[in-house]
């Protein structure tokens, strides 16, 4: 895993969550800019996923491989799944779904880092 990428994903995710919460409280539905934002966030996550997968195949990875891979798969699938689910909703609750996903994502990233570099 690339550390600065993890940091960037977490920051971008929290910024996205903040933006979507503002939209929720302003009673706005999810619009194209939100979707673009989620797309960019997803690209970052995919980047981290690819880098980590390559490292894993190269034999450099955590001991709990199964756990790590399942977390990684969840992290990669979460943004598009929530973006689609939120975009289908044409009310303020669309951005609310994205905000939730973007608050869960940094926590999952912390979990991934813990698995990758276990503190003994």
């Amino acid at each position: 895993m690339v550390d600065w990428l993890t940091m960037t994903i977490q920051m971008a995710s929290l910024a996205m969550a903040g933006w979507c919460l503002v939209s929720t409280f302003r009673d706005q539905p999810m619009l194209v800019p939100h979707l673009v934002g989620m797309g960019l966030l997803w690209l970052l996550v995919i980047g981290q996923g690819v880098v980590s997968a390559v490292a894993l195949i190269g034999g450099e990875g955590p001991e709990e491989t199964v756990m790590y891979v399942s977390y990684l798969a969840t992290v990669v699938l979460l943004p598009p799944a929530c973006a689609v689910w939120g975009f289908m909703e044409r009310s303020r609750w669309g951005p609310a779904v994205i905000a939730f996903a973007c608050l869960v994502l940094p926590v999952l990233m912390v979990r991934l880092e813990q698995l990758w570099n276990p503190v003994v």
């Binding site: 689910w85 909703e89 009310s91 609750w93 939730f100």
Partner: peptide, 11 residues
């Protein structure tokens, strides 16, 4: 599944 239910399903 619409409105707040949309968020509930996600959570």
């Amino acid at each position: 599944r619409t409105g707040p239910g949309r968020l509930l399903v996600a959570v």
